[in-house]
Simulated assay, not measured.
Amino acid sequence: MFLGPYDQGGVFLERGIAGIQRFLNRVWQLVMKYQDSLPSDELDVESQEDLHQTIYKVREDIQALKYNTAIASLMSYLNTLEAKEYLSQVEIKSYLLMLAPFAPHITEELWSRMGESYSIHQQSFPQANPKFLVQAQVTIAVQINGRTRTTLQLAPDASQEEAVALAKQSQSLQRYLNEPEVRRVVGSSVLRLINFANQ
């Protein structure tokens, strides 16, 4: 499941198995490190966003039979957890619950070592809170006459007019500005300003 799309098969090599073994060893070490000293403090907003976005991604990928990308999301989230100074119980337990469909035996053992009742496979899959799925900002590339000149950070619901106004204020674009008005704006994820600057 880790090596490629579920419905396309794949070449199963020993080095691929070694990679997933290293991943599971890291999970084991992380849980063992925190099993007796997990603070139950409330998570900060960034930690909650990381957790709930991972829950959402893994759930969606499982339902779409995209097991390899679900595992990739779990690997990425493991990097996030390992980089933190401390972890809460909800982070560790949610992680094990998400990993359980892919690694049933090791997650059952770790669940038990955390003092939880049998069995992890009788627990509900974590639910993503929609509140933490909305990005605070999105990155918009600004192109002038076909070339990307800078990027802007905007709210997801920002209007095109707000994006253009912010682009005009950007210091990195000042040397390209020679007209008071934008003649044409194209796109949403990429703000393309046509005839906004020297050719």
Rank of each mutant, 00 (worst) to 15 (best):
F2E: 07
F2N: 09
L3S: 05
L3N: 03
P5M: 02
P5N: 03
P5D: 03
Q8I: 04
G9F: 09
E14T: 01
R15I: 13
G16H: 11
G16W: 08
G16D: 11
G16S: 07
I17A: 09
F23I: 14
R26L: 08
W28C: 05
Q29F: 01
L30D: 11
M32Y: 10
M32C: 13
S37G: 14
L38C: 11
S40G: 06
D41A: 10
D41E: 11
E42I: 03
E42N: 05
E46H: 03
D50E: 12
L51N: 05
H52E: 04
Q53G: 09
Q53S: 14
T54R: 08
K57Y: 10
V58Y: 06
R59A: 14
E60P: 01
E60F: 05
I62R: 08
Q63R: 07
K66W: 09
S76D: 13
Y77E: 01
T80H: 05
A83M: 02
A83N: 08
S88Y: 01
S88T: 13
Q89A: 13
L97A: 15
L99C: 10
L99Q: 11
L99P: 03
P101T: 12
P101D: 09
A103L: 12
H105M: 07
H105D: 00
I106M: 15
L110P: 07
E116V: 00
E116W: 00
S117G: 09
S117Y: 03
Y118G: 02
S119P: 06
S119V: 04
Q123V: 10
K131Q: 14
K131I: 00
K131C: 03
F132V: 00
F132K: 02
F132Y: 15
L133M: 08
V134A: 03
V134L: 02
Q135Y: 02
Q135F: 02
A136M: 05
Q137R: 11
V138M: 01
A141E: 15
N145R: 08
G146V: 02
R147P: 02
R147W: 00
A155S: 11
P156D: 14
P156R: 10
D157M: 09
A158D: 05
A158P: 07
E161P: 02
E162P: 03
V164A: 04
L166A: 12
K168T: 05
Q169M: 12
S172R: 06
Y176H: 15
Y176N: 12
Y176K: 11
Y176I: 04
L177S: 05
P180A: 15
P180R: 15
R184T: 15
S188N: 13
S188E: 07
S189G: 06
V190F: 08
L193C: 05
I194D: 12
N195Y: 11
F196I: 09
F196N: 08
F196S: 07
A197D: 14
Q199K: 07
